[in-house]
């Protein structure tokens, strides 16, 4: 079955440099530094990446950071809680806009 996403393409990520090496090099260097040990540990950053991957619904990122989180010793429970955090922010981001809807209703309605 043909799909827009091919799992093999994840390993080809670095090939994006073919069309613009300078920017790609800067991106990959920056990416590497972002995930290095810092004020947050590389382990903590892996879990943040897993949650963000779900918020963005990026199949490549979910593939990569599920494996990375397993390798770094997270449990299934911890990983699912992280995804719920991402989902809660996504859901909350929609719902909080209901206040805007309510404001508009009040504005338009005869009180």
């Amino acid at each position: 079955m043909k799909t827009y996403y091919n799992p093999d393409d994840l390993a080809r990520f670095s090939e994006i440099s073919q069309y613009d090496k300078e920017l790609a090099d800067k991106f990959f260097k920056w990416y590497q530094e972002v995930f290095a040990e810092g004020a947050l540990s590389a382990r903590e950053k892996s879990l943040i990446a897993l949650a963000v991957a779900h918020a963005l619904q990026c199949p490549y990122c979910i593939h990569a950071y599920t494996e990375d989180a397993l390798a770094k010793g997270y449990s299934e429970e911890q990983m699912m809680e992280a995804v719920h955090v991402a989902a809660a922010i996504r859901g909350g981001a929609s719902l909080v806009h209901a206040t805007q809807m309510m404001n508009r209703i009040n504005q338009l309605s005869i009180s």
Binding site: A42, L70, K72
Partner: peptide
């Protein structure tokens, strides 16, 4: 050792967690 087809993460990180 990993429970599945993935590689081990850094030993010191896993040791701390365990």
């Amino acid at each position: 050792n990993p429970v599945g087809a993935f590689l081990s993460g850094p030993q010191h990180v896993l040791e701390q967690q365990f």
